[in-house]
Every structure is written in structure tokens, then in C-alpha cells.
């Protein structure tokens, strides 16, 4: 049998892949994809805890995470379309109106 730790470590490694992508990619689309990877890593840990603790609340929480991820993707991509219409770029370094 596979212990709980393996699932947690896989989930953490997946999350860190997403963190690396989010910190280093220049394209806004790739940053959104990294966010999706991170949310999936969290879902994996929720489902494995639900399985190993005999408690289905983890799976219910994972469903809510999926719903929030769907709305986040819709809003984020709509912002990206509005940005592309005004600036004709999807590179994060070109967007500096806010002086961040």
C-alpha cells in the first residue's frame, strides 16, 4: 500500500513546479497555467487526506476549489483579452502602468 506521505510529497512537488512557473515565466498565459497546476496540487492533497482519514469533506472542499478555479480562469482570461486589446502584449514586464 502507498502511504499518505507519498501523496503529500507528490502534491508538494507539483505545487512547487507551479510556483517555479509562476515566478519565472514572462507570458501571462503561462502564469495562469501555473496557477492551475498549483490548484491541482492542493486538490490532490485534499483528496488523499479524504481517503486516508475516511472523511469525505476533503472531496467536497476539492469540488469548491474546482469551482473557484473555473471562475478564476474565466475572469483572468477576460482581463488578458482586455489587456491585449489595449496594449497588444501578453508579457508581464510590458505592463507597468501601476509602477509595481
Amino acid at each position: 500500500m502507498v502511504p499518505l506521505q507519498w501523496y503529500i510529497w507528490l502534491s508538494v512537488a507539483l505545487f512547487m513546479t507551479g510556483v517555479f512557473g509562476f515566478l519565472t515565466r514572462r507570458s501571462i498565459i503561462m502564469m495562469f497555467l501555473s496557477i492551475e497546476v498549483m490548484l491541482n496540487a492542493v486538490n490532490l492533497s485534499l483528496v488523499s487526506f479524504a481517503h486516508f482519514l475516511n472523511d469525505l469533506r476533503g472531496e467536497v472542499l476539492a469540488l469548491f476549489v474546482i469551482a473557484v478555479a473555473a471562475s478564476e480562469a474565466a475572469i483572468g482570461l477576460a482581463i488578458l483579452i482586455a489587456l491585449f486589446r489595449n496594449r497588444a502584449t501578453a508579457q508581464i514586464e510590458e505592463v507597468k502602468e501601476m509602477k509595481g
Binding site: F20, L23, T24, R25, R26, S27, M30, Q91, I92
Partner: peptide, 11 residues
């Protein structure tokens, strides 16, 4: 263009 920003070792 370049696909990574300069801070990839940091990442």
C-alpha cells in the same frame, strides 16, 4: 522572445 524572466535561478 525570451521565455523566462531573469530570476529563474531565484525561482
Amino acid at each position: 522572445g525570451e521565455r523566462f524572466s531573469g530570476g529563474w535561478p531565484f525561482g
